[in-house]
Design a protein around this nucleic acid. Structure first.
Length: 217
DNA sequence: TACATGATGCCCT
DNA sequence: GGGCATCATGTAG
């Protein structure tokens, strides 16, 4: 597949003999800004039957919790957002605009609300499965950004739904959804205001790998 | 029980 | 660049 080229090819080869290890709970038990920055360049992994879907994290947003007016946890714990108040490293998946799921991970120690929204990924493996899930025809002219560039798109490409994945432990070795470190380090990270919000819209809490073409917008 | 709204994406112009 | 589908959720009444 053409997507496996350059840096990705080298890393894929280096990694092929070692096991895929989920990032530990400690990684997520920190301020969402620190987690956001350190998530850039890591790899989201989905085990799906016999297939392995992997993609590099290139764009995320930090949501700070009860002091952040734009955060779902701003007005306290509810049936929808309870995961954000619980232990770190758990998925928070919600349904939005009657159409899309958004995929987040809880941060900070148990009892403190906060999380990171995944906004864009760069596919590494399982591109055919992602295209199938997104109902996109795959050929030499396909713009691969349509697969995973945007929060709703990446959730669909990875088959992430609230029913299936909410409150899932991303740090468990048994999980079919987790994040791993393959050694890749972004050259440069940019920080910008968050996308699509009205409250606290000016705060620089969106983190992107500079120059990566899979970043949304 | 009713209603307003949204951490989006797609299609049309 | 703008309009709009579509529904789970939270909150008001």
């Amino acid at each position: 597949m053409a997507i496996l080229c350059g840096e990705h090819m080298r890393i894929a080869k280096n990694r092929s003999s070692s096991a895929l290890v989920p990032l530990p709970k400690d990684f997520y038990a920190r301020d969402p800004r620190a987690v956001s920055r350190d998530l850039l360049g890591k790899v989201l992994v989905r085990r799906q039957q016999r297939k392995l879907l992997t993609a590099r994290i290139v764009e995320v947003e930090a949501y700070l919790g009860q002091d952040d007016p734009a955060s779902h946890s701003a007005s306290g714990r509810t049936l929808r957002n309870f995961v954000l108040f619980g232990p770190p490293g758990l998925t928070y998946v919600y349904f939005i605009y009657g159409n899309h799921y958004c995929f987040n991970v809880s941060c900070l120690p148990d009892g403190q609300a906060g999380g990171v929204l995944f906004r864009a990924l760069e596919p590494i493996s399982g591109v055919e499965q992602m295209a199938l899930a997104r109902d996109i025809e795959l050929n030499e002219r396909t713009d691969l950004r349509k697969l995973t560039s945007g929060p709703g798109r990446l959730a669909e490409a990875f088959g992430i739904t609230r029913e299936r994945d909410n409150e899932k432990d991303l740090t468990s070795k048994k999980s079919d959804l987790f994040i791993t470190d393959d050694g890749f380090r972004p050259q440069r990270i940019e920080v910008t205001p968050r996308i699509g919000i009205t409250k606290a819209a000016e705060q620089p809490l969106r983190f992107i790998i500079a120059g990566n073409k899979f970043v949304s917008k």
